[in-house]
Simulated assay, not measured.
Amino acid sequence: MSVFVDVAPDGATDSRAGNRWPSWVTRLGLPSLSLLVFFIVWQLAAASEIWNQTFVPYPSTVWHAFIDVSTIHDGTRGYAGYLLWEHLYMTLRRVAAGVVIGVAAGVTLGLLMGSIPWVRSVLEPWLTFLRALPPLAYFFLLVIWLGIDEAPKVTLLALAALPPAAVATTAAVVAVPVSLVEAARALGASRRDVVRDIVIPSALPETFTGIRLAVGMAYSSVVAAELFNGIPGIGGLVKDASNYNNTPVVLVGIFAIGISGLVIDGLLRTVERRAVPWRGKV
């Protein structure tokens, strides 16, 4: 029996049923092309003058706003007295604190809910209730209870991050093959051994997915979390700039949140590949 394989000009081999694009094109070329198309469409939309520059500024205008927010110019330090990296640092610090608290609580709840049916029955309705609430629905209540300093911001981000981590971990624990658990118990493993050696390794892949979703939910809640006393902070910058219809600065803040989110998600993917190298292979 013979196997026919296509040989690409650059020496890479590809099966007839496989991907014919070189890997570097898929990883770098296509994303770069989509980015180029996005900026071309943006430039054409701004140049068409269908919309006022307040609504659709030129990419060059946004770039100049980025420079202004990132530097000291005409005696002004960045935006509202802080440089862009200082705004971003404060936002990332709040997100990190909220995500750590929310993910830790969510994974713990997920392990309990997945392992103990009556705990799942008690907590699942409350978790679903929290998932259904948009952040702004309870942020004002948090401000009343905790004030306008850091506590309500971090609490909001933690509450946003908790449900995805808890739901993903619960589903992963429930999906652990019963045969593996029974085999471990038949060999004399204690409940702790089963959780440590069977349940946690089996649940890790889906738990990492839940962590990534939790980070995304926390990021999507940043602007809401920084509505009050949010400067320095990217969300506070966006909110303050929107009050003055300063669209270029608003877009700078949006891009800062989005790009930093992509970087963090890439780091989480890297950690996931190293922590659970068996994902998709068993």
Rank of each mutant, 00 (worst) to 15 (best):
A158Y: 01
M90W: 14
H64C: 00
V174E: 13
A132V: 03
V62E: 07
E206Q: 12
A218R: 10
M217E: 13
W42G: 12
V223D: 01
T209L: 15
R212E: 10
V223Q: 00
P277I: 05
A104H: 01
L141F: 13
W278G: 10
A47C: 02
L146R: 02
V250Q: 03
A214I: 07
N245Y: 15
S190K: 05
I148P: 01
V223H: 00
A165D: 03
D10S: 04
S23E: 14
A241V: 02
S60H: 03
I148D: 02
S202N: 10
S34R: 09
L227E: 02
G81P: 08
V25I: 14
G261F: 03
V271K: 04
L130A: 13
A241C: 09
S23W: 09
H73S: 12
L146P: 01
V263T: 08
A65G: 08
H73Q: 12
V263L: 14
T76L: 14
R120M: 00
V154Q: 05
N245Q: 13
A166Y: 07
I72N: 10
A203P: 00
W126H: 12
A241D: 04
P163N: 04
E150R: 12
P31G: 11
S23H: 10
L251I: 14
E206P: 00
A241F: 09
A214Y: 00
F228P: 00
A175G: 08
L268D: 04
T76S: 14
V3Y: 05
G233C: 06
A160H: 04
A171N: 14
L127W: 00
I200H: 08
F55P: 01
L111G: 02
A184T: 11
V5S: 05
K281N: 11
D149N: 10
P22E: 08
V99P: 03
L123A: 14
P57V: 02
W21F: 15
